[in-house]
Simulated scan of single mutants.
Amino acid sequence: MNRLDRYILKTAAGAAIVLLLGLTGVIWVTQALREVDLITGKGQTVLIFLTVTLLSLPALVAGIAPVALFMSTLYTLNKLNGDSELIVMNAAGIAPHRVTRPFLVLTVATAVVVAWMTVSVMPASFRMLRDLITLIRADFVTNVVKEGQFVSLDSGVTFHYREKVGDSLVGIFMQDRRDPTQPSIYLAERGRTVEAEGQSFLMLEKGTIQREAKNTNTTSIISFERYALNLSALTGDPTGGAGEGDGDKVVYKPRERSTWELINQNPNEAYYKIQEGRFRAELHNRLSAPLYPFAFMLIAFAAIGEARTTRQGRALAIQAAIMIVGATRIAAYAAWTASVRSPVAAAMLYILPLLAIILAVALIYYGERLRPVLARMTAPLTLPLVNLAARFRRA
């Protein structure tokens, strides 16, 4: 890597880091504010609050890094053109595609970070968050919920106990309406929280469970002497609870499982049979994520990688690149959503970035021949916008 490459790489990398830290910080603060209830309403410490909010950072970094790379590429190329450095490079005989080398180095580094986050760090952070929320729920039930009050623990879950005697709760009532097709009501004379194998359970004694099946209009009542309610059931996932007093382990969602577990998934698992589409969508979303930094960088370079003057519509090229990247990201999200129902849609998670890469590379190498053709094809769409902008300038 020569001095020119190091100069461009230093400029682009600095901009990418600043953008990544700035965007991640802003979004993290907005998400952290939503968790203030951990301190004000659930009696948790500042350390727990910071831990919960920081566990969301890997997902933020993985999503923001390709966008930061795209924006830093636009910034660097625009700066080089504004300082006439691209024009000097062009006059010195440096081909436009030769300038992509430092950007490719930065893109590879970004893709490695994204792959590491999506394949390894994100699943581990989501799993830790799930376990921590379970412990928070257990602490919330025993230490924060006041006797005689009906408190909503989560969407559709209501908890109440009459009084507290020692470490036991007396007169327990819990309504679980998270699954609208099968609401449940738990009644118990007493109960207490226990920990086993690193998980928290609410041990209910001498009570009943009333389940109503809306589809069949039938109601079943189960009496029990002892029943172990896995407190992960209070995290909002109706499939995460324990069975009939058997102390089942937590059923982790697809995003909380390691990539290796998704690849070697047991097809006979009951939860997998219900959520097979989500397992497929999560796996392909992780594996395709490292392709998007390459696509976004090349789109930016194809738009303004050549030396141009302002009169040649450089601003319009930047706007077009932003629209293309936005459309690609939205289409990828739609493909990820559709892949839950259709295996064919999962292929679009790979096709979209690969198609963007191929078209961008073709423009970089054969831009002189392709741009006039694209200009004629997009003229019916861009001409009204150009006329509107001219009217505003005259006004």
Rank of each mutant, 00 (worst) to 15 (best):
I8E: 02
T11G: 12
A13F: 14
A16G: 05
L19V: 02
L19C: 07
V26L: 15
I27K: 04
Q31L: 15
Q31F: 15
L33P: 00
G41M: 11
G41C: 08
K42V: 08
V46R: 04
L47V: 14
T53Q: 00
S56K: 15
A59D: 10
I64V: 15
F70Y: 02
F70L: 03
T73C: 15
L74A: 06
L80T: 01
G82D: 10
D83I: 09
E85T: 04
E85H: 07
L86P: 00
I87L: 15
I87S: 11
M89T: 01
A91Q: 05
I94K: 03
T107L: 11
V113L: 15
A115P: 01
M117S: 07
T118Y: 13
M122W: 01
A124P: 00
R130Y: 13
R130K: 12
I136T: 09
D139R: 09
F140K: 02
G148M: 12
S152I: 09
S152R: 11
G156C: 06
G156R: 03
T158L: 15
T158A: 10
Y161Q: 07
Y161H: 06
R162F: 07
E163A: 07
K164N: 05
D167W: 02
G171S: 07
Q175A: 14
P180V: 07
Q182D: 10
P183T: 12
E189H: 07
K206A: 07
I209K: 08
R211L: 06
S220I: 11
L231H: 05
S232A: 15
T235D: 14
D237K: 05
G241I: 00
G241A: 12
G245I: 12
Y252A: 09
R257G: 08
E261T: 13
I263K: 02
N264F: 03
Y272C: 02
Q275E: 09
R278A: 08
F279K: 07
F279L: 10
H284C: 05
N285A: 13
R286I: 03
S288H: 11
A289L: 13
P293D: 12
P293L: 10
A295R: 03
A295Y: 04
F296I: 06
F296G: 06
F301L: 12
I304V: 15
E306H: 00
A307C: 08
Q312I: 00
I324S: 06
G326E: 08
G326C: 13
W336L: 12
S339G: 07
M348P: 01
L352F: 15
L354T: 11
A356Y: 04
L359F: 11
L359S: 08
V361R: 08
I364C: 00
I364F: 00
E368G: 05
L370I: 12
A375H: 08
A375V: 03
M377T: 10
T378Q: 02
T382E: 00
V386P: 03
A390D: 10
F392S: 12
